[in-house]
């Protein structure tokens, strides 16, 4: 099983030179730590910044420079600031190449649920609905099952959904999975030491095994 950091590390391997990327809150934020230095990429924060820099040192903290998780951050040479309408214009307009976000459930058709548990948790969707409706490539970082063993990769979502048929790829603590265009979870890679049988037993939706399933590689 992968740690959160390892999930982030595996997702970072999907990042390509020249991409503009939006990272969601939680594990996706960690992906920034593992993007190879030789790749030039720009991180977008939907509250109005292109070019997210590292967290500040104490002396650099500026209450007016935060990311979408409300964390203090820094800007980089070449950063740009804009308002929220402009931010989502670039998101809906397809200018952001890659969106990485967390999920509570994903269906075998690529539907995603991550904003509401009726009667329990209603924090809101933030920018997630705009992001999943528009990004060309959407990768989900998630735990394969919930802590109490409930399935999260399902034939169809049980929670209110955030977007329809939008997820392309999932990296969980157990596997790398792609969503088949006609529906189904295509098992592409296994976490080190995790068997295909275990992944099968922890996936409620249709799991497709089209080829040999290698273990994930980490440098």
């Amino acid at each position: 099983m992968l740690t959160k950091e390892q999930i982030a590390q595996r997702i970072a391997q999907e990042v390509k030179h020249g991409q503009y990327i939006n990272l969601g809150i939680g594990i996706p934020t960690l992906v920034a730590n593992y993007i190879p230095r030789e790749l030039d990429v720009v991180l977008q924060s939907e509250n109005g910044l292109l070019g997210i820099g590292p967290f500040p040192y104490e002396s650099e903290v500026d209450a007016d420079v935060i990311n979408a998780g409300k964390q203090t951050i820094t800007m980089l040479p070449g950063s740009a600031i804009f308002d929220s309408a402009e931010s989502f214009a670039m998101i809906r307009g397809g200018h952001v190449h890659l969106t990485i976000l967390g999920a509570m459930e994903v269906s075998e058709h690529g539907d995603i649920a991550n904003w509401k548990v009726p009667g329990k948790m209603v924090k809101g969707m933030g920018g997630a609905m705009d992001l999943v409706a528009s990004a060309k490539m959407i990768i989900v970082a998630m735990q394969h099952c919930s802590k109490d063993g409930h399935f999260k990769l399902l034939p169809s979502c049980t929670l209110p959904i955030t977007g329809v048929r939008c997820v392309k790829k999932i990296v969980s603590d157990l596997a790398v999975i792609e969503i088949a265009p006609e529906g189904g979870f295509i098992l592409k890679e296994r976490a080190p030491g995790v068997s295909v049988e275990e992944i099968k037993s922890k996936t409620a939706g249709k799991l497709l095994i089209l080829d040999k399933v290698p273990e994930m590689q980490f440098n």
Partner: peptide, 20 residues
């Protein structure tokens, strides 16, 4: 919100920004 004292309309952030 959960007790119903407060009405809440939640909207996607980009939709909210564009409505304004």
């Amino acid at each position: 919100m959960l007790s119903g004292e407060l009405e809440v309309e939640l909207l996607p952030q980009g939709t909210l920004a564009e409505k304004i």
